[in-house]
């Protein structure tokens, strides 16, 4: 894990369906820091995360990663980024284990099992995701945080549909990640109890 890793967004401007979002937004994330993006519904929190991973093309703005301008060529950034969007990208017709093998094929069975055990998914590892609850599906997606070794985490509403215990597990994991020098950008409406985060507020 690179400790010099840092992400800088400057003068970002996103447009969604004729509406201006995040106009003139600038912020940076330093290693070992959690950045919480706040803002009401429709202020562009999800769009901001999508713009960072190049799912959405911003109208203006520059993105620097590791001190390099990556606005045009996002490969370096994407390589070290783990993005979990609002639609979490868990396939309904695959089992829990197959889903994780699809995403992180290189992990050993031990790592996989311990991640599943951590999240209380061990009894369901051979169950198809289609028969899991919303919270359990979310946990399947979040299991990637234990299995991949990416530096920058972009998490869109990671706490939604998780129960109190799930939130604690996730916060602990985030704390562990930043204490090793990782970067976390997340959107949430919830107060973080275990993790200290810097806030960026998006205005409508």
């Amino acid at each position: 894990m690179q400790s010099s890793a840092s992400l800088t967004i400057s003068d970002l401007w996103i447009e969604r369906g004729e509406r201006d979002l995040c106009r003139g937004l600038s912020f940076d994330v330093r290693p070992g820091e959690v950045l919480r993006i706040l803002g009401g519904n429709g202020t562009g929190k999800s769009s901001l995360l999508k713009a960072i991973v190049d799912v959405i093309t911003p109208i203006e703005g520059t993105i620097y990663y590791l001190g390099k301008n990556v606005t045009q060529c996002r490969d370096v950034l994407i390589e070290s980024t783990l993005y979990i969007g609002h639609a979490v990208g868990v396939k309904r017709l695959l089992s829990v284990e197959e889903n994780l093998r699809w995403y992180c094929p290189d992990v050993s069975s031990d790592e996989l099992n311990s991640a599943l055990e951590h999240l209380g998914l061990w009894p369901f590892r051979d169950t198809l995701v289609t028969s899991l609850s919303a919270g359990q599906t979310k946990r399947v997606a979040l299991a990637r945080l234990w299995l991949s070794e990416k530096t920058l985490w972009l998490l869109d509403e990671p706490f939604s549909s998780l129960d109190a215990k799930g939130c604690t597990i996730l916060e602990n994991r985030i704390q562990q990640h930043v204490s090793l020098g990782g970067l976390v950008v997340l959107t949430t409406h919830q107060d973080l109890r275990l993790v200290s985060a810097r806030d960026v507020v998006l205005l409508s």
Partner: peptide, 12 residues
């Protein structure tokens, strides 16, 4: 619908 297309785009 399940967001895996986004994951493919951001998979590198």
């Amino acid at each position: 619908l399940d967001g895996s297309l986004e994951q493919l785009v951001t998979s590198g």
